[in-house]
């Protein structure tokens, strides 16, 4: 128990000391997560709409792929991406391996299925009369999609939350393609894994607390937005 209590004491001391390394890691994690969430949702939510909105050849197969991808092991995605980005890989010339954009790419691959599958479910949950009503009143494709999105906005906000949760908590791919380089590609999750393995329990715990606070802040922010739009 002492060991745990000592860990918490160190964690709070670090948090309030304004340690540059700790806050640098937190900032990088936030940046990576926000960019990856934005990219994954920008592609995943329209894909989810397309999957849910109208039947097309291969739709069921596409849904199965997306749903299967939800359970894709992050380290496997990391390995595949490593193969693509390494010097001998087809995208090696981009020199992205062991950079933070590589972590973003890995996170996007992992969060895209989350955004697509959950937004497809959100759209499928909207009363089909909403779409028909918008169409019969003369709305085009975009206006109709917007009408559906407005009805599903709470579920779509949950998509953002889930995608952010996926990117901020991801460790396997970030470790492999980011390399966990101090001051460059070290994120909260990779740092926690490293410090815990080195016995730096207090430091690992401090970073873990920041991670939880970060997720909490984003969730509270989204809930506040949902509250404003509840009318």
């Amino acid at each position: 128990m002492d060991f745990l209590a000592d860990g918490f004491r160190r964690a709070f001391a670090l948090l309030f000391s304004g340690d540059a390394e700790v806050y640098g890691i937190a900032l990088l994690t936030t940046k990576v997560a926000l960019i990856a969430t934005a990219l994954a949702c920008a592609a995943g939510i329209p894909a989810g709409f397309a999957l849910a909105s109208r039947p097309f050849w291969g739709r069921r197969a596409a849904l199965t792929v997306v749903n299967t991808a939800l359970a894709f092991p992050t380290v496997v995605v990391g390995l595949l991406l490593y193969g693509l980005l390494s010097r001998r890989g087809p995208l090696g010339s981009l020199r992205l391996l062991y950079t933070w954009p590589a972590i973003v790419i890995g996170d996007v691959f992992l969060a895209f299925p989350v955004a697509a599958a959950l937004s497809a479910a959100a759209v499928q949950g909207v009363d089909p009369r909403i779409r028909r009503t918008a169409q019969t009143l003369g709305a085009g494709a975009w206006r109709t999609a917007w009408a559906v999105a407005r009805e599903a906005r709470f579920a779509l906000a949950a998509v953002l939350t889930a995608a952010f949760g996926q990117t901020v908590a991801e460790v396997g791919a970030a470790m492999i393609v980011g390399g966990n380089i101090r001051g460059s590609t070290r994120t909260l999750t990779t740092a926690v894994a490293l410090y815990a393995s080195q016995g730096e329990f207090g430091l690992a715990l401090a970073l873990g607390i920041i991670l939880v606070v970060l997720a909490l802040v984003v969730n509270v922010g989204l809930q506040l937005l949902q509250g404003r739009g509840r009318a």
């Binding site: 009363d127 009369r129 909403i130 028909r132 009503t133 918008a134 009408a147 407005r150």
Partner: peptide, 9 residues
């Protein structure tokens, strides 16, 4: 429709 829906708002 038979049971029409209104948009939010």
């Amino acid at each position: 429709e038979q049971q029409p829906v209104l948009f939010r708002g």
